[in-house]
Amino acid sequence: MVEDLLAPGAHGRRVYVALGDSFTEGVGDYSPRLPNGVRGWADRVAEQLARADPGWEYANLAIRSKRLRHIIAEQLDPALAMEPTLVTLYAGGNDILDIGTDIHALMKDYEFLVARLSASGATVVLFTGFDVRVSALLEPLKRRNAIYNRRVREVAARYEAVLVDYWCFDAFYDPRMWDADRLHMSTAGHKYLAGQVLDQLGVPHKVKTKEWAPAPKAGFRDWERRQRRWVHDWVLPLFGRKIRGVTLGDQLSPRWPAPVRVPPKAGLKKLAAKIPAG
């Protein structure tokens, strides 16, 4: 895998394009020096690709809250125009959270998207969805998530895509792998996932994952306090946005909208420092 991936693509270039929503944008891995104030696993993958073989270019078109239809309409054609060597795609997670989503229609659109990307000749990386255990309120969504994961595995096999089976990663049962909203990975979670993606691609890397002692069990009062804070800080605002028909990504642009040459040593933070503010 690594030999094919590191071989020059069209016009002697190697281009990695990341597509999707907050999962790929990097929400939860906060870094004020980078575009949109986040870093994420995809930036880390791009940096490790450049260290393994300098010359890689990287674009990240993912924006938080985007549904699958938005990714198809807004990200697909720009991505194909970049003649990518490698594409990572996670899409559909926000649709699963929407009331009334037809999961079977969603997965038909998902396969259409994967088929277009695969036809480009790029190596395509797909992800199953993790069964996030945040609250009994979201338990009815487990059936949708199970269908989604089954269909993603089928699509990955059909189009010979690389599958990162996120659902199987036991490390994510540790709450410290998640941000305060319990839906997005923490910095530790993004680092761990970057390592898993690179391992699946066969790319050597130096991503170090966090090793913790077992998390202490919270008492009932502490658990109840955290639940109330989570509902107040995250759940109620989420439902409020749904009622108003707005999302956190409405005013955002892609973090890396055009391919940038990734510095093999200093990484993307040095590159971001050269971008004029505003």
Rank of each mutant, 00 (worst) to 15 (best):
M1T: 10
V2E: 13
E3L: 10
A7N: 10
P8C: 00
G12H: 07
G12S: 10
R14L: 01
V17P: 02
L19T: 04
F23S: 10
T24I: 01
G28Y: 01
Y30I: 06
P32L: 05
L34R: 15
P35V: 05
G37C: 09
V45T: 06
A46K: 08
E47N: 03
Q48L: 09
A50H: 01
P54R: 02
G55H: 02
W56G: 04
Y58S: 04
Y58G: 04
A59C: 11
L61M: 09
S65W: 06
K66P: 00
R67V: 09
L68P: 08
P78F: 13
A79D: 05
L80C: 10
P84F: 04
G92W: 02
G93Q: 04
G93D: 03
I96M: 09
I96T: 07
T101K: 10
T101I: 15
D102P: 12
D102F: 12
H104Q: 13
M107F: 11
D109G: 14
D109K: 14
E111R: 13
S118I: 01
S118Y: 03
S120L: 05
V124Q: 02
L138E: 02
P140W: 05
K142I: 13
I147F: 14
A157D: 14
C168W: 00
D170F: 00
D170L: 11
D170E: 15
A171D: 14
Y173H: 15
D174K: 05
D179T: 01
L183C: 08
K191H: 15
Y192W: 15
L193E: 07
G195S: 09
Q200P: 01
W212D: 15
F220K: 07
D222I: 11
E224I: 13
V231Q: 06
V235H: 02
P237H: 05
P237F: 05
G245E: 03
V246F: 05
L248E: 14
W256E: 03
V260A: 03
V262A: 04
P263A: 11
K269V: 13
K269F: 01
K269P: 00
A273K: 14
I275Y: 06
I275N: 07
